[in-house]
Design a protein around this nucleic acid. Structure first.
Length: 473
RNA sequence: GUCCCCAUCGACUAGCGGCUAGGUCACCACUCUUUCAAGGUGGUAGCAGGGGUUCAAGUCCCCUUGGGGACGCCA
């Protein structure tokens, strides 16, 4: 049975990279009918907060990455780590270290100055009982360090990158329990992954150099390590690791700005992974069916918002119109553009006009505002069109026709405008452009006959009158 | 600095010794058209460089270059 986990630290919102890691774990579990476990790694007491835990859970739920077990919290499991650490000390595989942070920092700086790799010097490796007693009497709180066996080599085999070996001497005796009694990342992960029966550790490439340390802990504990798979990193446009500098990277931002979860999932799945036949739009089911770690690429991938936007627009185009309408109404209410009692059937017609034009749901507010606002705001370009010679004559004529007209459906409106153009001996465009400017305040809109029809007789006439007044003044 | 990893169009990728190096986004042109999108058609663009191995190298090996990661009582 495949058991995988996603283990975020609640020190910030879920970001693009974390979401991708979660997604790949989730896909792997689903593909093999295994379990996806959520574990919160909150051993950094200072930076971890409950607020972020809540945010991360919400973001995962929005993405549809439901977990089968958890969330487990490492902060609830401190006794377990302590027990394992004590066992290692008893077996001579770990030891208490009384070195102060200052001493360690000094050593680190010295090694840096000498351009040497900084590894723990092993000062406390062979303390005698009386030395320990002496330190204890000074009130020093020890850390627990893992004893690295060297000489020796540790081989890491990775499902994505094959094997690579590390000389143990570069590892250094690392801390597994902090002086506060909480475990460090490397130790807690191993204990948890073992206790939780994790079979595959799928995580970011930045963890690759932690892996030999973790393997040595598994060995010391006399248990088999899980299989490892390190995913390539996600980079920004400048090929440095994706961060806030590159723009919005929190999932919350994408939730709030009109992206669809299935679109984001689809895009994320394509970052560092691809099919032989390369369709780009893949449903959740197709992803689950086709996902394998063998197809994950080794090279890091650049996050491309343009492609995400394209995928999002594809999902918008394919979306059921009723659902689309609901989502848009919810969004427009949120930004205060529409009242709470909007007429759904009318609204649906408006949304239909924009379905093929939106890249994000939030663009509806920008593109269609003139449908919802009482007063039209005229853009500079629209005013230019209105100011063209003969415009007011044309607008007056159209207005007259509209006043007389009973039916305001799209066909009737189009017929009216086109026959007027014929009568006046001008091109329909000569009427359409001023009309658009007058009704929408813009030079860009969906088809003008749809706009006229949906705006309705009263508003259309009012707006034309207002535009005419504007021209006089 | 040391260790580890990586390298196909601007971006994501297909390719697992024999392809005119394929697809998608973006870009450009044309088309449709009342504007803007969407749609349709076509196009520009790539194997980082150098050595090997082989009848044959984008594909295997080595070196160089470039990029990244790690070197915390962060995870």
């Amino acid at each position: 049975m495949v058991r995988v986990r996603f283990a975020p630290a609640p020190t910030g919102a879920l970001h693009i990279g974390g979401a991708r890691t979660a997604l790949f774990n989730w896909l792997y579990a689903k593909h093999f009918g295994g379990k996806f476990i959520l574990r919160i790694e909150d051993t950094d007491i200072v930076r971890s907060t409950n607020k972020w835990v809540k945010t991360i859970l919400e973001e995962l739920k929005w993405l549809g990455l439901d977990w089968d077990e958890g969330p487990y919290f490492q902060s609830d499991r401190l006794d377990i780590y302590k027990r394992y650490a004590e066992r290692l000390v008893k077996e001579g595989k770990a030891y208490y270290c009384y070195c102060s942070r200052e001493d360690l920092e000094k050593h680190r700086r010295k090694m840096q100055r000498l351009k040497r790799r900084s590894v723990y010097s092993g000062t406390c490796r062979e303390l005698t009982p009386s030395q320990r007693k002496h330190y204890e009497s000074q009130g020093r709180k020890p850390t627990v360090r893992f004893k690295i066996q060297h000489p020796g080599t540790t081989v890491v085999s990775d499902l994505i990158r094959g094997t690579s070996s590390f000389d143990n001497s570069i590892l250094g005796d690392f801390i597994i329990i902090k002086s506060t009694g909480t475990p460090t990342y490397n130790f807690a992960v191993v204990v948890d992954d073992y206790e939780m029966g994790i079979t595959h550790v799928i995580r970011g490439e930045d963890h690759i150099s932690n892996t030999p340390r973790q393997i040595l802990i598994y060995k010391a504990l006399s248990v088999d390590p899980p299989k490892f798979a390190h995913l390539p990193l996600i980079l920004g446009q400048d090929r440095t690791p994706l961060s806030k500098r590159h723009g919005e990277i929190s999932i919350t931002h994408y939730i709030e700005n009109g992206y669809l979860p299935e679109a984001l999932v689809n895009y994320l799945s394509l970052l560092g992974w691809g099919l032989t036949s390369s369709p780009q739009i893949l449903s959740r089911e197709e992803l689950i069916k086709d996902f394998t770690l063998e197809r994950v690429s080794k090279a890091s991938a650049v996050f491309d918002i343009e492609k995400l936007l394209w995928i999002n627009s594809e999902y918008i185009k394919r979306m059921d119109i009723s659902r689309m309408t609901d989502i848009c109404i919810t969004y427009l209410k949120k930004v205060g553009l529409v009242e709470f009692n909007v007429k759904n059937s009318w609204f649906k017609e408006v949304i239909k006009l924009y379905k093929d034009r939106l890249k994000t749901i939030s663009q509806i507010a920008e593109f269609a505002s003139f449908f919802f606002e009482k007063e039209v705001n005229y853009s500079k370009e629209a005013i230019n069109i209105l100011n063209k010679e003969g415009t007011s004559q044309v607008l007056k004529k159209v207005k007259e026709r509209f006043v007389e007209q009973e039916d305001f459906d799209v066909f009737s409106v189009e017929k009216t405008v086109r026959s007027l153009a014929l009568e006046l001996g001008i091109k329909a465009a000569k009427i359409i452009h001023p009309l658009r400017a007058a009704l929408t305040g813009r030079t860009i809109s969906p088809g003008i006959f749809d706009v006229v029809s949906l705006l309705g007789k009263e508003r259309v006439i009012n707006r034309i009158e207002r535009a005419l007044n504007l021209l006089k003044g």
